[in-house]
Design a protein around this nucleic acid. Structure first.
Length: 292
DNA sequence: CTTTTCTCCTGTATGC
DNA sequence: TGCATACAGGAGAAAA
């Protein structure tokens, strides 16, 4: 499940292996991955032909390649990995993956870029670039906590008027981006806050600490190459990250809390699993937020 | 406007 | 062994 650290690892792979190269030929297998490009995959492939890759950028869980078309027009190719998307750099004659959706060949003798996605929640789309360099199509995605543009005070102010669960707010990519289910649970565990707490009921300092924990846990995960539970998340060379062994809450149901020894619990929340320590993260009194 | 629910997808695990 | 069901969950559309 690629979240910010995992996507950043992939971005660095694109920087190392794709930036500076000219796209020669793109092929899509099926229409699903290019579904957000309304004219269809054939049109998208045509529009990518001959583009020079200037940069690989990221905001939250979104990646984009900064491209210069043959006519001098600059544009962004947005790539989202969804749940199980992978970008792999491989020799053109390497064996075809089962869920291969796209191949990019370049105008050099170097390796191919492939998009492989089992669940096909991922996708690609072209977008104009706004003055700040952010693609217009993801202008609704808020800055992530690792960006210079991230304004912690502004995020705290918006959380203070949110009448919904604080975990739901952490997952809201329009409020702050990059956090998914794993790092939300980790940040909440570190902060000692139950995810069902109404965001507005937390003090500003407590909200600030929560955001800081989210930032720190994602930075640590990045330092370990990201979190992998299986072969679904890998870097462009197909290797897994090893932060999973450092997780304190996510996936640790029934195992002792590393802080107090209490058994970690798992509960369904927002149609997802939430892992928390019932002692360090007490359920909000009065339970204003409905769990389902 | 804010908040919640539904839907997309397929491999893996589990129960009967 | 086979079949049904639950689960993993990001994000956008639609509904409330």
């Amino acid at each position: 499940m690629p979240e910010l650290p995992e996507v950043e690892v992939v971005r660095r792979g694109l920087h190392d292996h794709v930036v500076g190269r000219r796209i020669e030929h793109v092929e899509f297998f099926g229409a699903r991955v290019a579904r957000r490009h309304l004219p269809g995959p054939g049109d998208l492939a045509d529009r990518l032909h001959g583009n020079l890759v200037h940069e690989a950028r990221r905001r939250g869980k979104y990646l984009w390649l900064v491209l210069e078309a043959p006519d001098g027009h600059w544009q962004g190719l947005i790539i989202h990995l969804g749940m199980s998307g992978q970008l792999l750099v491989e020799a053109a004659d390497a064996a075809r993956e089962t869920h291969l959706h796209a191949t990019f060949d370049f105008a050099d003798d170097g390796p191919q870029l492939r998009f492989v996605d089992q669940r096909t929640f991922g996708g690609m789309a072209l977008s104009e670039l706004q003055p700040g360099g952010i693609p217009a199509r993801i202008s609704h995605i808020a800055p992530d906590p690792l960006e210079l543009a991230f304004d912690k005070g502004a995020v705290i102010a918006r959380l203070k008027v949110r009448h919904t669960a604080v975990k739901r707010s952490l997952l809201d990519q329009g409020l702050l981006s990059g956090i998914g289910n794993i790092y939300a649970d980790e940040a909440l565990w570190r902060a000692g806050v139950h995810g069902a707490r109404e965001a507005a009921t937390l003090s500003k300092p407590a909200l600030g600490r929560l955001i800081e924990h989210a930032r720190e846990v994602m930075l640590e995960a990045l330092g370990h190459g990201g979190t992998s539970f299986d072969s679904l998340y890998v870097n462009v060379n197909g290797a897994s990250g090893y932060f999973a062994r450092s997780l304190d809450a996510y996936g640790r149901e029934g195992r002792p809390c590393r802080r107090c020894g209490t058994s970690i619990r798992r509960e369904a929340f927002m149609n997802r699993s939430s892992f928390f320590c019932p002692r360090c993260q007490p359920r909000p009194r009065g339970a204003v937020i409905v769990l389902r």
